[in-house]
């Protein structure tokens, strides 16, 4: 199982393509690999396929029968398309653009939602431990510890998004996929989440889709630039922002389009 080729990559994409309608590729033969405990930012103008690529990694596209994904995605050396989709999704936690705490569950219940949905029974102490630990890792514990039984939807936008991150972390995933997690938030909430992501890097591998270049520059180790479904450039963030190899990347970073 661990006899993978590239021992220091946690995730490898091989010729990954995604199409919404037959013949039109939204993501075109992307190849990439991701090192553990790094933050990788995927950038690009809207409609370039960055979210589509991200959602291929936890097989989210399979919820919609018209979407076809081809190629290979290796998670710790294992082809995810040969695994059970539910297991893939547990190993690759996802945070969405709009915070989506479950409205019928309390804050406490939301953090444990992954266990509840997977029908895993836990003892009361295990539950308390997971809730506290997950909320602490998103710096939300101090703010909500006295109102754990309130509905998650009562929180502010930024708090809701951190709750959703805690919900994903509670399942102890290998990867954290984030789809423009701060695009709907104010600058202060955004800053808090960015801060937190840098702290989380010690334990998790994070892939974050963002249209905010300065965000990518602030927090990511590596950056990918996508344009019209193609992966144009992939390298360290520092290198990409200082010496982009491709003309299109340079145009994007200097604000020529997007």
């Amino acid at each position: 199982m661990e006899n993978s080729i590239n021992i220091d990559s946690i995730l490898e994409l091989k010729d990954v393509s995604v199409s919404y309608t037959p013949g039109k590729l939204a993501v075109n033969e992307v190849n990439a690999y991701f090192k553990p405990q790094t933050i990788t930012a995927i950038m690009g103008p809207s409609g370039c396929g960055k979210s589509t690529l991200l959602r291929a990694i936890n097989r989210m596209h399979e919820l919609y029968p018209d979407i076809v994904t081809t190629g290979e995605i290796l998670l710790k050396g294992q082809n995810i398309f040969k695994m059970n989709p539910m297991k893939v999704r547990r190993l690759a936690g996802m945070v969405f653009q709009r915070a989506n705490p479950f409205p019928t569950m309390s804050i406490y219940g939301n953090v444990l939602a992954g266990y509840k949905l997977n029908n895993i029974s836990l003892s009361k102490t295990e539950k308390d431990e997971i809730v506290e630990h997950s909320l602490r890792s998103v710096n939300l514990w101090e703010e909500v510890k006295d109102s754990l039984n309130k509905k998650g939807t009562f929180l502010s936008g930024g708090q809701q998004q951190r709750l959703c991150i805690a919900r994903a972390l509670a399942l102890k995933p290998e990867l954290l996929l984030m789809d423009e997690p701060t695009s709907a938030l104010d600058p202060i909430s955004t800053a808090r989440i960015e801060e937190m992501l840098v702290e989380l890097k010690d334990q998790y591998t994070i892939i974050i889709v963002t249209h905010n270049m300065s965000q990518a520059a602030r927090i990511s180790d590596n950056s990918m630039f996508m344009y019209l479904g193609e992966l144009v450039e992939f390298g360290t963030t520092k290198q990409m922002f200082t010496k982009p190899k491709d003309k299109r990347t340079e145009d994007y970073l200097t604000g020529a389009f997007g």
Partner: peptide
């Protein structure tokens, strides 16, 4: 915990 994940998955899908 890992064990309970895999052993029940097939049953849950069924």
């Amino acid at each position: 915990m890992k064990k309970s994940f895999t052993s029940t998955t097939r049953f849950r899908l069924a």
